[in-house]
Design a protein around this nucleic acid. Structure first.
Length: 683
DNA sequence: CGTTCCTCTCTTTTT
DNA sequence: GAGAGGAACG
């Protein structure tokens, strides 16, 4: 992606540590290069502190490209890079900044050959990984695999992912987290080994591989010289959101920092909310065990929220046993008491939020973008979305279906993937099936030949499969074998690929235009009711892709970028000022003057799964803590009291235990009563 | 073999 | 309210 920033030869930092930082923050910024763990509460200026530490390093003569700055989420990464760049007017593009996965991707593009990856390896998104797993299972054709009790492809990828994340074996993961499959350890192990092999054949990696191979480069004695080169490229390592890393990431961090020893990690154990994907917040405690010499520095002064909001948050998190007891201190003046609002049902919950948003917007001139509605999972926001649409309140959903995970986007992207990495059988399969006359059978045969997995006689080829055959030639040959509509389709497809491989088609944006123009527009007309909207999406995608010169880079970006919701990208002419709707996970690190939290009902938030185990309940409470600490001035906690079953009876809902457990003196919230205004008095 | 239409299942959270 | 998988038809 094109990114611009001004660059000065000698960075002149507009940095004044005395003026800009409090003593706790200054202690972090000024600590000599070494092992540092910063325990930073919500809203205590964590990003600011880390940014200034980078500034200090650069001011001290360190080249930005010799700093590695990694975080867990895209958002945090972008925020961090942006703030460093604006503070220092330097270009951080050369530095290794971004999510672990981005940095891993960059490193493997360059050094992946050592672990057997071609330079144009593709990245499997979770859906692809699941499909691939499914085909591995069905190809193995073992009897156990078809039994009802055998884990499905999604669960299998989960097991593989957990094993990668905790640096454990498959049996160990099953023993720890999937005991119901204990008697299936051997076949599961076999399937996952095949899955790994299959990824290699396809020259593809999944998200976990981006990190696993990175660690392999650092640890395996076979790659000692690569490891040395890697370590030698950076002098300092800084890690944000340390509470959300897993064992694998922890190991990478330690290995990367081994020689230079300059490692600054920032995190808040109270905000660890990703254990479901292997984040292991004991990492943050083990840090001091692994690095005995590490300095531990606290940040506890909260600049964000009113004391009222903080007392609520403090009281809630204090109920967690697994935590560092710490109180956030408020510096802001007292404000409004958080509101607890019971509603009749979800409909009323949506109405009330919409109404309150409008009141604040019109009566207090608060822009919509200064307000956010947070919820446990995206389904919780549906009724609200309906109500907001009805009242014409613009909103942006920061969750839901990802733009690039929609079918039409993935279809078109499959062409790019196939062009960049012809061994990507999944992409071939996907795009072949779009053609009339080509069904599963034909698609599978042609895809495996194109991918070089099999020769034309159905014999499995060894890996590496030699130089890939020219795609148009293979397609032409296959078309001769086919008949009827499939024949026509393959002939047309061969021509399309000729065009895609021409120089003009190299640019990803241009390539997408060709694909849509030559094929997909027709397909969309035939297949979708909302073909126009989808074609518009594809125009936007072509535009977006046009910013990259190199399609492989574009594809990596697309796979690793955070979920831009469809709404966010698609609409071109919408107002800037929009109410924010977000899952709590996606809201981490952000703040708004006004925050609404929806669906505070036992079984929803905390979720019913979490009610079963205490460790999970504590994680949910941390999530609640994250939600409440997003609010600066006003916090509204809402819950419906009854739910009308679609088919079944109406049920009475219990308010979330995260609310009732706070209900003692002095009160931390104020209960609001809702009275319906008769229609004639409205207005 | 390919297509279409039906039912069933799911929905934590993200890279 | 979507996606996967199965059944039945062309």
């Amino acid at each position: 992606m094109a990114k611009y920033s001004l660059k000065t030869r000698s960075p002149k930092p507009a940095v004044d540590l005395q003026r800009d930082l409090n003593p706790q923050q200054r202690a972090v910024v000024e600590a000599p290069a070494g092992k540092i763990l910063v325990l930073a509460g919500a809203g205590t200026g964590k990003t600011r502190t880390l940014t200034y530490r980078v500034a200090k390093l650069v001011a001290g003569g360190c080249q930005p490209e010799r700093i590695m700055l990694v975080t867990f989420t895209n958002r945090a990464a972008r925020e961090m890079v942006h703030r460093v760049e604006s503070l220092l007017t330097i270009d951080m593009r050369r530095s290794a900044s971004g999510t672990f996965h981005h940095v891993g991707n960059r490193i493997l593009r360059r050094y992946g050959e050592a672990v057997g990856l071609g330079p144009d390896f593709g990245i499997l998104d979770p859906e692809d990984a699941r499909d691939l797993m499914g085909s591995v299972v069905s190809e193995l054709g073992m009897a156990v695999l078809t039994s009802k009790r055998f884990p499905d492809a999604r669960v299998l990828t989960k097991i593989a992912s957990q094993a990668a994340g905790m640096l454990g074996t498959i049996p160990a993961v099953i023993e720890r987290r999937f005991t119901r499959f204990l008697d299936l350890v051997a076949p599961i192990d076999k399937v996952l080994a095949d899955f790994k092999e299959r990824k290699r054949r396809l020259n593809m990696v999944d998200f976990d591989d981006l990190l696993s191979y990175w660690l392999e480069l650092l640890r395996d004695p076979k790659h000692a010289s690569v490891a040395e080169q890697l370590r030698g490229q950076w002098d300092h390592m800084l890690v944000d959101e340390y509470q959300d890393i897993n064992v694998l990431q922890g190991a990478i961090i330690d290995e990367m920092a081994r020689d230079h020893g300059s490692l600054t990690c920032v995190g808040d154990d109270a905000q660890s909310i990703y254990s479901f994907r292997g984040a292991d917040f004991s990492q943050i405690y083990d840090f001091r065990i692994r690095h005995k010499e590490a300095q531990v520095l606290p940040l506890t002064i909260n600049y964000r929220s009113t004391p009222q909001i903080l007392s609520l948050a403090n009281r809630s998190i204090a109920r967690n046993r697994e935590q560092h007891p710490k109180e956030l201190t408020a510096v802001r003046k007292p404000g409004a008491t958080p509101a607890l609002i019971p509603l009749r049902d979800v409909i009323q919950q949506g109405e009330l939020v919409a109404q309150r948003v409008l009141e604040l917007h019109h009566e207090q001139s608060l822009p919509l973008r200064k307000m956010a509605v947070l919820y446990r999972n995206h389904a919780h926001s549906l009724e609200l979305q309906v109500e907001l649409t009805r009242r014409n309140i613009p909103f942006a959903v920061r969750s839901g279906v990802r733009f690039f995970e929609q079918r039409h986007i993935k279809d078109v992207v499959a062409y790019l993937r196939a062009r960049e990495n012809p061994r990507d059988a999944l992409a071939w399969l996907r795009l072949l099936r779009l053609w009339p006359g080509i069904g599963n059978r034909t698609a599978e045969r042609v895809a495996s030949v194109l991918a070089g997995e099999f020769d034309a006689f159905g014999r499995r080829l060894p890996v590496p499969a030699g130089p890939p055959a020219p795609v148009p030639e293979v397609l032409a040959a296959e078309s001769k074998q086919a008949k009827g509509r499939a024949k026509d389709a393959l002939v047309t497809l061969a021509k399309l690929f000729d065009r895609l491989l021409e120089a003009g088609g190299r640019n990803p944006g241009r390539a997408i235009e060709i694909i849509v123009h030559e094929h997909y527009a027709d397909y969309a007309e035939r297949s979708f009711e909302n073909a126009d909207a989808r074609k518009e999406d594809l125009d936007n995608l072509a535009n977006y892709a046009g910013r990259w010169e190199d399609a492989t880079e574009f594809l990596s970006e697309l796979a690793l970028i955070e979920g831009i919701s469809a709404e966010n990208v698609v609409m071109g002419d919408e107002p800037d000022d929009k109410l924010v709707l977000s899952t709590i996970h996606q809201a981490k690190g952000l703040e708004w003057p006004v925050v609404f939290v929806l669906w505070l009902v036992d079984g929803r938030f905390p979720s019913s799964q979490a009610l079963r185990a205490n460790a999970e309940l504590e994680e949910e409470r941390r999530l609640f803590y994250v939600a409440t600490t997003r609010a600066e001035d006003d916090l509204y906690l809402l819950y419906p009291t009854i739910e009308e079953g679609r088919r079944g009876p109406t049920t009475v809902l219990r308010p979330s235990r995260f609310l009732t457990e706070l209900d003692h003196d002095p009160p931390v919230y104020e209960r609001w009563e809702i009275e319906e205004v008769p229609p004639e008095e409205e207005g």
